[in-house]
Design a protein around this nucleic acid. Structure first.
Lengths: 252, 252
DNA sequence: CGATATTTGTACGTATGTATT
DNA sequence: TAATACATACGTACAAATATC
């Protein structure tokens, strides 16, 4: 035991702290990419220990995480089995991130757009009847920043996510706020995808809509805020939806 | 080491398998009940090891779980701090169960009703445009069972939850289905509460509404299904809401 | 500011229990 | 029944973050 680094770092990606993570990612990759097929069994825990040169503790942790997002089914006494896509927990941010990195999320786009529409529209309806003065001034400040001329595309994505996040906060529904955390990864994937797919001029249109939404909230007119949000989300649907199109978007 | 039972069982409740669970529950109880106040520090890990006579592994697991539902904040190098209610993860089923057992969930009822309304209404709208013949026949069979004269209150709760669960399945939106799992605990709490609070005659009214919802789905009329679900959920809101009432419900 | 003590984090190896085959 | 495989818990060692003097 002499050449073990004092800090666990991946030489390529840098910044990896937990040993189980790289193992988790390795196996997850193989499952998502289809290299490991549903129903197959993984090697036994001692075999995995040897292959990855780690202790049972680490392998157990990796398998637990894989199990918690539905990629494998660990059965006491029997073995660890690869699970099919229907068992995957699509709400899990790390799984979504993998799907974005490795495979494709195209097959989820329409489901995502739907859930986004209902979530955002309901949130803004509540926000328009409940936002506090401090909620509103925070939103105003954010919208002002969106209008700045020197906003980079990355910043624009960030500001967009922040805008929608603030509206959920302003809904003052604690479950909605909890669900926002669950959906954060999914929404993030979509906002980025839209920006890649859309015209550069989109930002002007989008900002105008943000302002309308804000007006609806500020004037405490839930119907107006709701309608503005519906229009806004429909814009994303037009850009990204696969269901309502004949031709596929190859820019996605 | 002679009188240690070969299986970890709680003599009272029976069926407890993991050592960390009882510790987790002990501490969670003290936090939810207010015995431990926000900002206080828990004993150090070695102290907890001694107090509960278990190893670090077990204490660590208990603290991790407490942290994952937001009851404590474990800070590397500093200690473990009790978190305030605003940090609690209300979507977590075990936390909700605790709140039901120990404290009260009254303060959450209105938030719950709102989230339920939006969730159910949107789900049924999608279901009405997408339900497959097998979805529909499963719903029909379930509604028929609801009309049986000898349904116990417990069965009625179960059938209700199953009805709503099936509608989500029939929406064929994979994220909605994922969220259903997240919300299952919360919805369950509410359906039970309603049954306790409502008139016995409610079941007749409620069943009629279930039938209307089913009709809307079967006829592929999203608007009709949506309206029926809205009426149905408003019934629950009338029974349970605290926001729209002057007098508190003492039957809750 | 720096040295030191305290506290949590990670990983190891091992022993034993329990479910499945 | 026996063999296999996962599950739980223990104790230890060292690393890393924080607090304190």
């Amino acid at each position: 035991m002499s050449d073990i680094p004092s800090k666990n770092e991946d030489s390529e990606t840098g910044a990896k702290r937990r040993l189980y993570e790289s193992i988790f990612r390795d196996i997850a990759r193989d499952i998502i990419s289809g290299k490991l097929k549903a129903g197959e069994t993984l090697p036994t825990v001692p075999q995995l220990c040897e292959r990855f040169s780690v202790s049972r503790t680490v392998i157990r942790e990796a398998l637990q995480h894989l199990g918690s997002i539905g990629l494998v089914d660990v059965r006491h006494g029997a073995g660890t089995f690869v699970a099919g896509p229907d068992k995957w927990d699509l709400l899990n941010p790390s799984l979504l991130q993998f799907l974005g990195e490795i495979g494709t999320i195209e097959f989820l786009i329409d489901d995502l757009l739907e859930i986004r529409r209902m979530f955002e529209v309901e949130a803004v309806t509540l926000a328009a009847s409940r936002a506090t003065p401090s909620d509103i001034s925070a939103l105003e400040e954010l919208v002002a920043r969106m209008y700045a001329p020197d906003v980079t595309p990355e910043q624009d994505v960030e500001l967009n996510l922040e805008f929608h996040s603030m509206i959920v906060t302003a809904s003052h529904n604690r479950f909605l706020i909890g669900l926002r955390e669950q959906l954060r990864g999914a929404l993030s994937v979509m906002v980025s995808a839209r920006q890649r797919a859309a015209d550069p001029e989109l930002r002007t249109v989008s900002n105008a809509m943000h302002r309308q939404i804000l007006e609806g909230i500020r004037e405490r007119r839930p119907d107006r805020a709701r309608a503005a949000m519906e229009a806004h989300v429909q814009g994303a649907e037009r850009t990204l939806s696969r269901r309502s199109r004949d031709k596929p978007l190859d820019s996605l």
